[in-house]
Design a protein around this nucleic acid. Sequence first.
DNA 1: ACTTGTACCATTACCACACATGGAACATAT
DNA 2: ATATGTTCCATGTGTGGTAATGGTACAAGT
Lengths: 124, 124
Amino acid sequence: MQIIIDIDDPVPIFSQLVEQIKQAVAGEKIQPGDPLPSIRQLANDLDVNSKTVAKAYKLLERDAVIQSRGYRGTFVHPEAKDNCQIDIKAWATSQFEEFILAMRDAGVTDSEMRITFNNVLNGK
Amino acid sequence: MQIIIDIDDPVPIFSQLVEQIKQAVAGEKIQPGDPLPSIRQLANDLDVNSKTVAKAYKLLERDAVIQSRGYRGTFVHPEAKDNCQIDIKAWATSQFEEFILAMRDAGVTDSEMRITFNNVLNGK
DNA sequence: ACTTGTACCATTACCACACATGGAACATAT
DNA sequence: ATATGTTCCATGTGTGGTAATGGTACAAGT
């Protein structure tokens, strides 16, 4: 597996990692059950902070594309091929679009939405 | 009618204006049909920028608490007393709470929600 | 001992937004 | 002329989040 990180790319590093690993799974360059490099190992190879790799792995595990097994390392998820096609981002986007349209119809300002949204997210 | 602006108050000036005018309507210190000071006049009296007063008036008009009649000035809305009780902000907050909870249940990160929310708002 | 993922602490840079301010112009009416 | 609300331009300040960095530490297993 080969991963290339472009520092000048406006896309965050952790996102580049997520996308390239998903592509590797979709392109069958890595198969379900295959081991992935450890967080520290990959961080070292790419000359990137380990926290950045950890963030990418965490997102990939949430999407059930990889599986973290603690001290045993990280592996490609059994149903990775299916799960890496599911784009939770696209789904969330459509949900937000619908919600925001309803809000605008109700006369809520974009500015008010931003403020309310942040207040609720921060639990205030 | 008497309006007091507190610069040190963390509450934005335009919000202070909106609240105090709503209170004046609810407390029947100004009646439906009564004229309000012009934007420039009030801005001058309070030593505040006219844009700030215009913003407050715009919000009050959206809530149907006041009515702008162009060159003729601004007046208290006929159904002002009813409308200034309706708190669109509280309603929006509850809507957002419900929506955000559903998103979290679906496994969407707060960070992803922020990004998606902004993308949709900006039409990207 | 060594490595695994994970969890805290922290700082730095950047960027987007809210808020407020100022100037200028417009159409509409007295 | 004067005044109304409205709309465009622009700037500055403060806040807050994202992203990335670094260090330290832990439990669990080889």
